[in-house]
């Protein structure tokens, strides 16, 4: 699987993650506010990263930090959906926890000079 295919699949995953709640909300004519659009962007990012990481399954499936990152991203997307449904922006703070976790992993790996962010 080459780089273009990985990016294409990740973008598809992000689009699906972002559009699924939007289609739901529009179909049932629920109010759509700025908070909802923000949640769609957050869900797109979450879906993109989730698909990107999931495509590396064969390399990392035995690492705890990798499985934890996938699980946290799923929880993050779920929180984002909740925030879009209830129109509460602070739900996105919980969602951002997964991103912060991955960024921390990357920073630690860079500081230790490791080849990939999944330490254990």
């Amino acid at each position: 699987m080459n780089f273009a295919e990985v990016v294409l699949l990740s973008a598809a995953g992000g689009v699906i993650a972002a559009l699924a709640p939007l289609i739901y909300l529009f179909y049932y004519t629920r109010p759509v506010t700025f908070t909802v659009w923000t949640g769609a962007v957050a869900a797109f990012i979450g879906g993109f990263i989730f698909t990107l990481l999931a495509l590396q399954w064969g390399l990392f499936y035995a690492r705890f930090t990798y499985i934890l990152a996938l699980a946290l991203l799923l929880v993050s997307i779920a929180y984002t959906y909740w925030g879009m449904f209830r129109r509460r922006w602070f739900a996105y703070l919980f969602a951002a926890a997964a991103w912060i976790y991955i960024i921390l992993l990357a920073v630690v790996a860079r500081a230790l000079g490791l080849g990939d962010p999944f330490i254990i």
Partner: peptide, 9 residues
């Protein structure tokens, strides 16, 4: 997957 994403759009 790309098709499903385009379809959802």
């Amino acid at each position: 997957l790309v098709g499903v994403a385009a379809g959802m759009a």
